[in-house]
Amino acid sequence: MPSTADIQAGLAEILEEVAGVTPADATPEKSFTEDLDVDSLSMVEIATAVEDKFGVAIPDDELANIKTVGDAMSYIEKNQ
């Protein structure tokens, strides 16, 4: 099982790759759309990258509830 820090680092990597977010900015309290300028279509790409990397499924209706980096981290932790 990856640690919380591993999950945060893995997510930061995906955010950088998909949406050009500086890894240091990918902290739990940040909102994807408000703070990190990630739009709804990039969110879809982030979701599919997370699915591949962490082996979790994120259906569209669950994705709609993931607003912050912290939301994504706890979703991954719970569903792994």
Binding site: S40, L41, V44, E45, A47, T48, D60, L63
Partner: peptide
């Protein structure tokens, strides 16, 4: 839209 986008890109 989003479901189709996800399907098309994966």
């Amino acid at each position: 839209g989003q479901a189709v986008y996800r399907w098309a890109t994966t």
